[in-house]
Amino acid sequence: MSTDDPIPIKYQAGQSWKYLSRVGEEHSRIVILKTETRGSEKIVHITVVGDGIDAPLHMPFSVDAMDKSVTELDETTVSVPEFETGYEIWREEYDKEQAGIYAIPVAEVLNL
């Protein structure tokens, strides 16, 4: 079950957030790609941008994991990179219960 209705959370597509980054990546930012509710899960789809960052273009996180990651809103409207292909692959796997969402902070995921 999916809905594209906005979910009542502080994260919105097109925002840029400062976060608890890894050492040396303090200038990188989280960009919110999309938010959605699937079943009972509120999901924040992100990417991480910045010099030297080699992050996937699409990463799905729980709201709780995002709350543990972000420190402050940096910008309310930034350019959102193309992420639809990665999102569609994830969604198909999620619907088959073969993929999930990250429940740990962003910096920890980047270390995986």
Rank of each mutant, 00 (worst) to 15 (best):
M1E: 02
M1R: 01
S2R: 08
S2D: 07
D4H: 08
D4N: 14
D5Y: 05
D5A: 13
P6H: 07
P8I: 02
I9F: 02
K10C: 03
K10P: 03
Y11V: 03
Q12F: 05
Q12D: 01
Q15I: 02
Q15H: 04
S16G: 01
W17T: 01
W17P: 03
W17D: 00
W17I: 00
W17N: 01
W17H: 03
K18P: 01
K18V: 04
L20E: 12
S21A: 15
R22G: 14
V23M: 10
V23T: 15
E26R: 14
E26G: 06
S28C: 06
S28E: 05
R29L: 12
R29K: 13
I30M: 07
I32D: 08
L33S: 04
K34P: 01
T35D: 12
E36M: 15
E36L: 14
T37C: 14
T37P: 00
R38G: 03
R38H: 12
G39N: 09
S40V: 12
V44L: 15
H45T: 06
V48S: 00
V49I: 15
G52F: 08
I53S: 00
D54M: 08
D54T: 08
A55R: 04
A55K: 06
P56H: 10
P56M: 07
P56R: 07
P56K: 09
H58N: 06
H58L: 07
M59K: 06
M59C: 09
F61Q: 07
S62F: 05
S62A: 11
S62R: 04
S62V: 06
V63C: 03
V63M: 02
V63Q: 00
D64C: 01
D64I: 02
M66A: 13
M66I: 13
K68C: 09
T71R: 12
T71M: 15
T71L: 15
E72Y: 13
L73V: 09
L73W: 07
E75S: 08
E75L: 11
T76M: 08
T76N: 10
T76Y: 02
T77A: 11
S79W: 00
S79N: 04
V80F: 02
P81I: 01
F83K: 01
F83I: 03
E84I: 06
E84S: 12
Y87S: 06
Y87R: 15
E88T: 10
I89V: 11
I89H: 13
I89Y: 12
E92I: 05
E92D: 13
Y94T: 07
E97I: 01
E97H: 12
Q98W: 05
Q98V: 01
A99N: 11
A99D: 15
G100H: 00
G100W: 02
G100D: 08
I101H: 00
Y102E: 12
Y102K: 06
A103K: 14
I104K: 09
A107T: 08
V109H: 03
L110M: 14
L110W: 05
